[in-house]
Design a protein around this nucleic acid. Structure first.
Lengths: 217, 217
DNA sequence: TCTATATTTTAGGCGAACCGAAATTTTTGA
DNA sequence: TCAAAAATTTCGGTTCGCCTAAAATATAGA
Protein backbone atom coordinates (compact mmCIF):
# COMPACT_ATOMS: atom_id res chain seq x y z
CA UNK A 1 0.00 0.00 0.00
CA UNK A 2 1.37 3.41 -0.95
CA UNK A 3 1.44 6.00 1.83
CA UNK A 4 -0.92 8.92 1.76
CA UNK A 5 1.82 11.28 0.68
CA UNK A 6 2.97 9.00 -2.10
CA UNK A 7 -0.58 8.92 -3.39
CA UNK A 8 -0.55 12.71 -3.44
CA UNK A 9 2.69 12.83 -5.35
CA UNK A 10 1.48 10.32 -7.93
CA UNK A 11 -1.88 11.98 -8.39
CA UNK A 12 -0.34 15.38 -8.93
CA UNK A 13 2.35 14.11 -11.24
CA UNK A 14 -0.42 12.59 -13.32
CA UNK A 15 -2.36 15.84 -13.36
CA UNK A 16 0.62 17.94 -14.38
CA UNK A 17 1.57 15.33 -16.95
CA UNK A 18 -1.80 15.50 -18.67
CA UNK A 19 -1.84 19.30 -18.79
CA UNK A 20 1.78 20.25 -19.36
CA UNK A 21 3.34 17.07 -20.68
CA UNK A 22 6.62 17.38 -18.84
CA UNK A 23 6.78 17.23 -15.04
CA UNK A 24 9.60 19.14 -13.35
CA UNK A 25 10.64 19.19 -9.73
CA UNK A 26 9.60 22.83 -9.51
CA UNK A 27 6.12 22.35 -10.91
CA UNK A 28 5.47 19.51 -8.48
CA UNK A 29 6.93 21.52 -5.64
CA UNK A 30 4.53 24.35 -6.39
CA UNK A 31 1.51 22.14 -6.76
CA UNK A 32 2.18 20.24 -3.55
CA UNK A 33 3.44 23.25 -1.62
CA UNK A 34 6.49 21.29 -0.54
CA UNK A 35 10.09 22.48 -0.87
CA UNK A 36 11.95 21.48 -4.05
CA UNK A 37 14.50 19.65 -1.92
CA UNK A 38 11.88 17.38 -0.40
CA UNK A 39 10.23 16.80 -3.73
CA UNK A 40 13.57 15.86 -5.23
CA UNK A 41 14.12 13.29 -2.48
CA UNK A 42 10.69 11.79 -2.89
CA UNK A 43 11.13 11.55 -6.64
CA UNK A 44 14.29 9.55 -6.11
CA UNK A 45 12.40 7.22 -3.82
CA UNK A 46 9.50 6.79 -6.20
CA UNK A 47 11.92 6.03 -9.02
CA UNK A 48 13.54 3.31 -6.92
CA UNK A 49 10.11 1.87 -6.18
CA UNK A 50 9.34 1.78 -9.87
CA UNK A 51 6.41 4.17 -9.87
CA UNK A 52 8.13 6.58 -12.21
CA UNK A 53 11.22 7.11 -14.31
CA UNK A 54 13.48 10.00 -13.49
CA UNK A 55 16.23 11.61 -15.53
CA UNK A 56 18.10 13.79 -13.04
CA UNK A 57 17.86 17.49 -13.81
CA UNK A 58 15.37 16.68 -16.54
CA UNK A 59 12.02 15.45 -15.39
CA UNK A 60 9.77 12.66 -14.40
CA UNK A 61 7.32 10.28 -16.08
CA UNK A 62 4.94 7.82 -14.49
CA UNK A 63 5.43 4.15 -15.25
CA UNK A 64 2.41 1.99 -15.99
CA UNK A 65 2.23 0.97 -12.35
CA UNK A 66 2.55 4.57 -11.17
CA UNK A 67 -0.15 5.69 -13.54
CA UNK A 68 -2.44 2.93 -12.31
CA UNK A 69 -2.04 4.10 -8.74
CA UNK A 70 -2.59 7.72 -9.72
CA UNK A 71 -5.81 6.87 -11.53
CA UNK A 72 -7.07 4.87 -8.59
CA UNK A 73 -6.77 7.92 -6.38
CA UNK A 74 -8.19 10.24 -8.98
CA UNK A 75 -11.21 7.96 -9.29
CA UNK A 76 -11.78 8.03 -5.57
CA UNK A 77 -11.31 11.78 -5.47
CA UNK A 78 -13.84 12.46 -8.19
CA UNK A 79 -16.38 9.94 -6.98
CA UNK A 80 -16.19 11.53 -3.58
CA UNK A 81 -16.64 15.02 -5.01
CA UNK A 82 -19.72 13.81 -6.80
CA UNK A 83 -21.03 12.29 -3.61
CA UNK A 84 -20.49 15.50 -1.67
CA UNK A 85 -22.53 17.45 -4.19
CA UNK A 86 -25.29 14.93 -4.85
CA UNK A 87 -25.86 13.46 -1.41
CA UNK A 88 -24.57 16.00 1.06
CA UNK A 89 -25.39 19.10 -0.98
CA UNK A 90 -22.01 20.73 -0.71
CA UNK A 91 -21.28 23.66 -3.01
CA UNK A 92 -19.20 23.32 -6.14
CA UNK A 93 -16.32 25.24 -4.70
CA UNK A 94 -15.99 23.37 -1.41
CA UNK A 95 -15.65 19.83 -2.58
CA UNK A 96 -12.09 19.64 -3.86
CA UNK A 97 -10.57 20.41 -0.50
CA UNK A 98 -12.81 17.91 1.31
CA UNK A 99 -12.13 15.20 -1.24
CA UNK A 100 -8.37 15.66 -0.84
CA UNK A 101 -8.66 14.05 2.55
CA UNK A 102 -11.18 11.34 1.80
CA UNK A 103 -9.57 9.94 -1.33
CA UNK A 104 -6.86 8.31 0.75
CA UNK A 105 -8.98 6.44 3.20
CA UNK A 106 -11.79 5.17 1.01
CA UNK A 107 -11.86 1.40 0.92
CA UNK A 108 -12.64 -0.43 -2.32
CA UNK A 109 -15.96 -1.40 -0.85
CA UNK A 110 -16.83 2.18 -0.07
CA UNK A 111 -15.81 3.21 -3.57
CA UNK A 112 -18.21 0.66 -5.03
CA UNK A 113 -21.09 1.61 -2.78
CA UNK A 114 -20.74 5.26 -3.63
CA UNK A 115 -20.41 4.53 -7.32
CA UNK A 116 -23.68 2.63 -7.11
CA UNK A 117 -25.55 5.23 -5.07
CA UNK A 118 -24.54 7.82 -7.66
CA UNK A 119 -25.58 5.66 -10.59
CA UNK A 120 -22.08 5.10 -11.99
CA UNK A 121 -21.30 8.65 -13.08
CA UNK A 122 -18.71 9.29 -15.80
CA UNK A 123 -17.73 12.82 -14.85
CA UNK A 124 -17.35 14.70 -11.59
CA UNK A 125 -19.16 17.95 -10.70
CA UNK A 126 -16.59 20.02 -12.58
CA UNK A 127 -16.85 17.90 -15.69
CA UNK A 128 -13.59 16.04 -15.15
CA UNK A 129 -13.81 12.39 -16.21
CA UNK A 130 -13.98 9.76 -13.47
CA UNK A 131 -11.45 7.03 -14.32
CA UNK A 132 -13.02 3.60 -14.60
CA UNK A 133 -12.21 0.85 -12.17
CA UNK A 134 -9.78 -0.78 -14.56
CA UNK A 135 -7.91 2.46 -15.12
CA UNK A 136 -9.21 3.91 -18.36
CA UNK A 137 -10.12 7.56 -18.76
CA UNK A 138 -12.60 8.84 -21.27
CA UNK A 139 -11.12 11.85 -23.01
CA UNK A 140 -13.63 14.62 -23.46
CA UNK A 141 -12.91 16.82 -26.46
CA UNK A 142 -13.47 20.40 -25.47
CA UNK A 143 -12.15 23.90 -26.12
CA UNK A 144 -11.58 26.80 -23.80
CA UNK A 145 -14.38 29.33 -24.09
CA UNK A 146 -11.70 31.90 -24.80
CA UNK A 147 -11.06 30.24 -28.18
CA UNK A 148 -14.67 30.37 -29.34
CA UNK A 149 -15.55 32.75 -32.20
CA UNK A 150 -18.30 35.38 -32.23
CA UNK A 151 -21.82 34.12 -32.79
CA UNK A 152 -21.20 30.50 -31.91
CA UNK A 153 -23.47 28.60 -29.52
CA UNK A 154 -21.69 26.25 -27.13
CA UNK A 155 -22.33 23.95 -24.22
CA UNK A 156 -20.27 23.91 -21.01
CA UNK A 157 -18.48 20.58 -20.57
CA UNK A 158 -15.96 21.32 -17.87
CA UNK A 159 -14.78 24.04 -15.52
CA UNK A 160 -11.24 24.09 -14.18
CA UNK A 161 -11.46 23.27 -10.48
CA UNK A 162 -8.11 24.70 -9.47
CA UNK A 163 -9.56 27.90 -8.04
CA UNK A 164 -12.49 27.77 -5.59
CA UNK A 165 -13.21 31.47 -5.94
CA UNK A 166 -13.50 31.12 -9.69
CA UNK A 167 -15.89 28.20 -9.25
CA UNK A 168 -17.94 30.14 -6.77
CA UNK A 169 -18.22 33.06 -9.15
CA UNK A 170 -19.00 30.87 -12.16
CA UNK A 171 -21.88 29.23 -10.37
CA UNK A 172 -23.16 32.58 -9.11
CA UNK A 173 -23.58 33.83 -12.68
CA UNK A 174 -25.32 30.62 -13.73
CA UNK A 175 -22.35 29.08 -15.48
CA UNK A 176 -22.75 25.43 -14.60
CA UNK A 177 -22.21 22.13 -16.37
CA UNK A 178 -24.16 21.52 -19.56
CA UNK A 179 -25.42 25.09 -19.73
CA UNK A 180 -25.84 26.44 -23.24
CA UNK A 181 -24.50 29.85 -24.05
CA UNK A 182 -23.84 31.95 -27.10
CA UNK A 183 -20.86 34.18 -27.64
CA UNK A 184 -22.14 37.57 -28.75
CA UNK A 185 -18.99 39.57 -28.98
CA UNK A 186 -15.28 39.18 -28.41
CA UNK A 187 -13.45 42.27 -27.24
CA UNK A 188 -10.13 42.81 -28.97
CA UNK A 189 -8.57 45.02 -26.31
CA UNK A 190 -8.75 42.63 -23.34
CA UNK A 191 -10.11 39.39 -24.81
CA UNK A 192 -13.19 39.55 -22.63
CA UNK A 193 -16.41 38.09 -24.03
CA UNK A 194 -20.02 39.16 -24.07
CA UNK A 195 -22.12 36.02 -23.77
CA UNK A 196 -25.77 35.17 -23.41
CA UNK A 197 -26.81 32.54 -20.89
CA UNK A 198 -30.52 31.87 -21.04
CA UNK A 199 -32.00 35.32 -21.44
CA UNK A 200 -29.24 37.17 -19.61
CA UNK A 201 -26.36 38.83 -21.29
CA UNK A 202 -23.12 39.34 -19.44
CA UNK A 203 -19.42 39.93 -19.76
CA UNK A 204 -16.84 37.29 -19.00
CA UNK A 205 -13.18 38.12 -18.44
CA UNK A 206 -10.46 36.49 -20.51
CA UNK A 207 -9.15 34.65 -17.46
CA UNK A 208 -12.51 33.21 -16.60
CA UNK A 209 -13.08 32.21 -20.23
CA UNK A 210 -9.77 30.33 -20.28
CA UNK A 211 -11.03 28.12 -17.48
CA UNK A 212 -14.38 27.24 -19.01
CA UNK A 213 -14.29 24.37 -21.50
CA UNK A 214 -17.04 23.89 -24.05
CA UNK A 215 -18.14 22.04 -27.15
CA UNK A 216 -19.96 23.49 -30.10
CA UNK A 217 -23.67 22.92 -29.57
CA UNK B 1 -5.55 20.71 16.34
CA UNK B 2 -4.71 17.39 17.94
CA UNK B 3 -2.98 14.86 15.69
CA UNK B 4 -4.85 11.82 14.48
CA UNK B 5 -3.01 9.59 16.92
CA UNK B 6 -3.69 11.86 19.84
CA UNK B 7 -7.37 11.74 18.96
CA UNK B 8 -7.17 7.95 19.07
CA UNK B 9 -5.52 7.96 22.45
CA UNK B 10 -8.06 10.33 23.91
CA UNK B 11 -11.05 8.51 22.47
CA UNK B 12 -9.87 5.18 23.81
CA UNK B 13 -8.96 6.55 27.20
CA UNK B 14 -12.49 7.88 27.39
CA UNK B 15 -13.97 4.54 26.40
CA UNK B 16 -11.93 2.57 28.93
CA UNK B 17 -12.68 5.18 31.55
CA UNK B 18 -16.43 4.81 31.15
CA UNK B 19 -16.33 1.01 31.26
CA UNK B 20 -13.56 0.24 33.73
CA UNK B 21 -13.14 3.45 35.66
CA UNK B 22 -9.38 3.33 35.92
CA UNK B 23 -7.17 3.56 32.84
CA UNK B 24 -3.80 1.82 32.97
CA UNK B 25 -0.95 1.91 30.50
CA UNK B 26 -1.51 -1.76 29.77
CA UNK B 27 -5.21 -1.49 29.03
CA UNK B 28 -4.56 1.36 26.63
CA UNK B 29 -1.68 -0.52 25.08
CA UNK B 30 -3.95 -3.48 24.40
CA UNK B 31 -6.80 -1.42 23.04
CA UNK B 32 -4.57 0.58 20.73
CA UNK B 33 -2.29 -2.33 19.81
CA UNK B 34 0.73 -0.20 20.56
CA UNK B 35 3.62 -1.23 22.81
CA UNK B 36 3.42 -0.19 26.49
CA UNK B 37 6.64 1.74 26.02
CA UNK B 38 5.13 3.95 23.34
CA UNK B 39 1.90 4.40 25.24
CA UNK B 40 3.83 5.46 28.30
CA UNK B 41 5.65 8.10 26.28
CA UNK B 42 2.48 9.43 24.75
CA UNK B 43 0.78 9.61 28.13
CA UNK B 44 3.60 11.76 29.40
CA UNK B 45 3.16 14.05 26.43
CA UNK B 46 -0.60 14.29 26.83
CA UNK B 47 -0.17 15.11 30.50
CA UNK B 48 2.19 17.94 29.60
CA UNK B 49 -0.34 19.22 27.10
CA UNK B 50 -3.01 19.22 29.76
CA UNK B 51 -5.35 16.69 28.19
CA UNK B 52 -5.07 14.30 31.11
CA UNK B 53 -3.61 13.90 34.57
CA UNK B 54 -1.11 11.15 35.13
CA UNK B 55 0.18 9.66 38.34
CA UNK B 56 3.24 7.63 37.28
CA UNK B 57 2.80 3.89 37.86
CA UNK B 58 -0.83 4.54 38.78
CA UNK B 59 -3.07 5.60 35.97
CA UNK B 60 -4.57 8.28 33.90
CA UNK B 61 -7.66 10.48 33.92
CA UNK B 62 -8.93 12.87 31.28
CA UNK B 63 -9.13 16.54 32.14
CA UNK B 64 -12.17 18.54 31.07
CA UNK B 65 -10.37 19.61 27.93
CA UNK B 66 -9.28 16.07 27.17
CA UNK B 67 -12.78 14.77 27.65
CA UNK B 68 -14.14 17.44 25.36
CA UNK B 69 -11.79 16.37 22.60
CA UNK B 70 -12.61 12.71 23.14
CA UNK B 71 -16.33 13.36 22.87
CA UNK B 72 -15.86 15.35 19.70
CA UNK B 73 -14.24 12.37 18.06
CA UNK B 74 -16.74 9.92 19.47
CA UNK B 75 -19.53 12.05 18.05
CA UNK B 76 -17.96 12.01 14.62
CA UNK B 77 -17.32 8.30 14.83
CA UNK B 78 -20.87 7.43 15.72
CA UNK B 79 -22.46 9.84 13.29
CA UNK B 80 -20.35 8.33 10.58
CA UNK B 81 -21.31 4.80 11.56
CA UNK B 82 -24.94 5.80 11.34
CA UNK B 83 -24.34 7.31 7.94
CA UNK B 84 -22.66 4.17 6.66
CA UNK B 85 -25.64 2.07 7.67
CA UNK B 86 -28.43 4.43 6.66
CA UNK B 87 -27.10 5.93 3.47
CA UNK B 88 -24.53 3.50 2.13
CA UNK B 89 -26.16 0.33 3.43
CA UNK B 90 -23.11 -1.12 5.10
CA UNK B 91 -23.60 -4.04 7.46
CA UNK B 92 -23.61 -3.66 11.22
CA UNK B 93 -20.30 -5.40 11.62
CA UNK B 94 -18.33 -3.43 9.02
CA UNK B 95 -18.89 0.10 10.16
CA UNK B 96 -16.66 0.44 13.19
CA UNK B 97 -13.50 -0.18 11.22
CA UNK B 98 -14.50 2.22 8.45
CA UNK B 99 -15.49 4.92 10.91
CA UNK B 100 -12.11 4.66 12.65
CA UNK B 101 -10.58 6.32 9.63
CA UNK B 102 -13.22 8.89 8.84
CA UNK B 103 -13.68 10.31 12.31
CA UNK B 104 -10.36 12.11 12.05
CA UNK B 105 -10.89 13.92 8.80
CA UNK B 106 -14.50 14.99 9.07
CA UNK B 107 -14.82 18.76 9.05
CA UNK B 108 -17.35 20.47 11.29
CA UNK B 109 -19.35 21.30 8.22
CA UNK B 110 -19.47 17.69 7.14
CA UNK B 111 -20.48 16.66 10.64
CA UNK B 112 -23.43 19.06 10.51
CA UNK B 113 -24.54 17.98 7.05
CA UNK B 114 -24.51 14.33 8.02
CA UNK B 115 -26.31 15.01 11.28
CA UNK B 116 -29.00 16.75 9.27
CA UNK B 117 -29.32 14.08 6.58
CA UNK B 118 -29.75 11.51 9.34
CA UNK B 119 -32.36 13.56 11.16
CA UNK B 120 -30.24 14.29 14.25
CA UNK B 121 -29.99 10.75 15.65
CA UNK B 122 -29.31 10.20 19.35
CA UNK B 123 -27.77 6.74 19.15
CA UNK B 124 -25.54 4.95 16.65
CA UNK B 125 -26.39 1.64 14.95
CA UNK B 126 -25.16 -0.34 17.96
CA UNK B 127 -27.21 1.69 20.39
CA UNK B 128 -24.30 3.73 21.70
CA UNK B 129 -25.25 7.34 22.42
CA UNK B 130 -24.04 10.02 20.03
CA UNK B 131 -22.55 12.86 22.08
CA UNK B 132 -24.19 16.21 21.42
CA UNK B 133 -22.32 19.06 19.80
CA UNK B 134 -21.71 20.74 23.14
CA UNK B 135 -20.28 17.61 24.66
CA UNK B 136 -23.06 16.01 26.64
CA UNK B 137 -23.85 12.31 26.51
CA UNK B 138 -27.23 10.86 27.26
CA UNK B 139 -26.76 7.89 29.56
CA UNK B 140 -28.96 5.00 28.58
CA UNK B 141 -29.88 2.81 31.53
CA UNK B 142 -29.59 -0.81 30.41
CA UNK B 143 -28.63 -4.22 31.75
CA UNK B 144 -26.72 -7.05 30.15
CA UNK B 145 -29.06 -9.73 28.86
CA UNK B 146 -27.08 -12.18 30.97
CA UNK B 147 -28.51 -10.56 34.13
CA UNK B 148 -32.14 -10.91 33.10
CA UNK B 149 -34.31 -13.40 35.03
CA UNK B 150 -36.47 -16.18 33.57
CA UNK B 151 -39.78 -15.15 32.10
CA UNK B 152 -38.98 -11.48 31.65
CA UNK B 153 -39.66 -9.64 28.39
CA UNK B 154 -37.01 -7.15 27.37
CA UNK B 155 -36.09 -4.81 24.53
CA UNK B 156 -32.60 -4.60 23.00
CA UNK B 157 -31.09 -1.17 23.59
CA UNK B 158 -27.45 -1.72 22.73
CA UNK B 159 -25.02 -4.32 21.44
CA UNK B 160 -21.34 -4.15 22.27
CA UNK B 161 -19.55 -3.27 19.06
CA UNK B 162 -16.10 -4.48 20.08
CA UNK B 163 -16.33 -7.73 18.12
CA UNK B 164 -17.45 -7.71 14.48
CA UNK B 165 -18.02 -11.46 14.42
CA UNK B 166 -20.33 -11.20 17.39
CA UNK B 167 -22.26 -8.42 15.67
CA UNK B 168 -22.51 -10.39 12.50
CA UNK B 169 -23.85 -13.38 14.37
CA UNK B 170 -26.28 -11.33 16.42
CA UNK B 171 -27.81 -9.79 13.33
CA UNK B 172 -27.97 -13.19 11.62
CA UNK B 173 -30.24 -14.52 14.36
CA UNK B 174 -32.42 -11.44 14.23
CA UNK B 175 -31.01 -9.76 17.31
CA UNK B 176 -31.07 -6.13 16.31
CA UNK B 177 -31.76 -2.84 18.04
CA UNK B 178 -35.19 -2.39 19.61
CA UNK B 179 -36.13 -6.03 19.09
CA UNK B 180 -38.33 -7.49 21.84
CA UNK B 181 -37.45 -10.84 23.27
CA UNK B 182 -38.47 -12.98 26.20
CA UNK B 183 -36.12 -15.02 28.33
CA UNK B 184 -37.59 -18.53 28.57
CA UNK B 185 -34.99 -20.35 30.54
CA UNK B 186 -31.61 -19.74 32.08
CA UNK B 187 -29.26 -22.73 32.16
CA UNK B 188 -27.39 -23.08 35.44
CA UNK B 189 -24.50 -25.12 34.10
CA UNK B 190 -23.16 -22.68 31.49
CA UNK B 191 -25.32 -19.56 31.94
CA UNK B 192 -26.68 -19.83 28.42
CA UNK B 193 -30.20 -18.59 27.79
CA UNK B 194 -33.17 -19.88 25.86
CA UNK B 195 -34.93 -16.85 24.41
CA UNK B 196 -37.82 -16.21 22.11
CA UNK B 197 -37.47 -13.58 19.39
CA UNK B 198 -40.68 -13.13 17.46
CA UNK B 199 -41.94 -16.66 17.02
CA UNK B 200 -38.51 -18.29 17.04
CA UNK B 201 -36.95 -19.84 20.08
CA UNK B 202 -33.20 -20.11 20.29
CA UNK B 203 -30.24 -20.52 22.60
CA UNK B 204 -27.84 -17.71 23.35
CA UNK B 205 -24.44 -18.32 24.91
CA UNK B 206 -23.41 -16.59 28.12
CA UNK B 207 -20.75 -14.63 26.29
CA UNK B 208 -23.17 -13.35 23.69
CA UNK B 209 -25.70 -12.46 26.41
CA UNK B 210 -23.08 -10.41 28.25
CA UNK B 211 -22.72 -8.22 25.19
CA UNK B 212 -26.40 -7.53 24.60
CA UNK B 213 -27.86 -4.72 26.70
CA UNK B 214 -31.56 -4.46 27.31
CA UNK B 215 -34.29 -2.73 29.26
CA UNK B 216 -37.37 -4.36 30.77
CA UNK B 217 -40.19 -4.01 28.29
C1' DT C 1 30.88 31.62 -25.90
C1' DC C 2 30.61 32.08 -21.33
C1' DT C 3 28.83 33.98 -17.21
C1' DA C 4 24.77 34.95 -14.47
C1' DT C 5 20.58 33.03 -13.14
C1' DA C 6 17.49 29.34 -12.50
C1' DT C 7 16.76 24.62 -11.46
C1' DT C 8 17.81 20.54 -9.18
C1' DT C 9 20.16 17.63 -6.05
C1' DT C 10 22.90 16.51 -1.86
C1' DA C 11 23.99 17.04 2.97
C1' DG C 12 22.84 17.56 7.56
C1' DG C 13 19.09 18.03 10.75
C1' DC C 14 14.38 17.90 12.90
C1' DG C 15 9.87 16.14 14.99
C1' DA C 16 6.41 12.62 15.45
C1' DA C 17 5.47 8.24 16.78
C1' DC C 18 6.97 3.75 16.84
C1' DC C 19 9.97 -0.31 18.83
C1' DG C 20 12.88 -3.63 21.95
C1' DA C 21 15.74 -3.95 25.88
C1' DA C 22 16.85 -2.52 30.30
C1' DA C 23 15.73 -0.28 34.54
C1' DT C 24 12.41 0.93 37.93
C1' DT C 25 8.38 0.53 40.74
C1' DT C 26 4.37 -1.92 42.35
C1' DT C 27 1.80 -5.92 43.48
C1' DT C 28 1.18 -10.51 44.95
C1' DG C 29 1.45 -14.71 47.31
C1' DA C 30 4.31 -18.22 49.77
C1' DT D 1 7.76 -10.15 55.02
C1' DC D 2 9.96 -10.22 51.10
C1' DA D 3 11.22 -12.20 46.67
C1' DA D 4 9.27 -13.21 42.22
C1' DA D 5 6.17 -11.58 38.83
C1' DA D 6 3.74 -7.93 36.66
C1' DA D 7 3.35 -3.28 35.29
C1' DT D 8 5.46 0.85 34.01
C1' DT D 9 8.96 3.91 32.54
C1' DT D 10 13.46 5.19 30.48
C1' DC D 11 16.89 4.69 26.97
C1' DG D 12 18.76 4.29 22.55
C1' DG D 13 17.45 3.53 18.02
C1' DT D 14 14.36 3.47 13.61
C1' DT D 15 11.45 5.35 9.75
C1' DC D 16 8.93 8.82 7.35
C1' DG D 17 8.66 13.04 5.43
C1' DC D 18 9.79 17.63 6.04
C1' DC D 19 13.28 21.73 6.04
C1' DT D 20 17.45 25.05 5.07
C1' DA D 21 21.82 25.74 3.20
C1' DA D 22 25.15 24.49 0.08
C1' DA D 23 26.71 22.24 -4.06
C1' DA D 24 25.99 20.76 -8.71
C1' DT D 25 24.03 21.20 -13.16
C1' DA D 26 21.45 23.39 -16.86
C1' DT D 27 19.81 27.41 -19.51
C1' DA D 28 19.67 31.88 -21.37
C1' DG D 29 21.31 36.24 -22.81
C1' DA D 30 25.05 39.62 -23.50
Amino acid sequence: MPSEQIENYLKNIYKIQTVEGKVSTTSLSEKLQISPASVSEMIKKLAEEGSLTHTPYKGVELTESGKRMALKILRKHRLWEMFLVEVLHFGWEEIDEEAEKFEHIMSGKMEDKIDEVLGFPSVDPHGDPIPSKNGTVKVVRSYPLSDVKDGVIVRVLRVNDANPELLQYASSIGLSLNKRLSVKQKMKFDNSLVVKIGSREMTISATLAENIFVETA
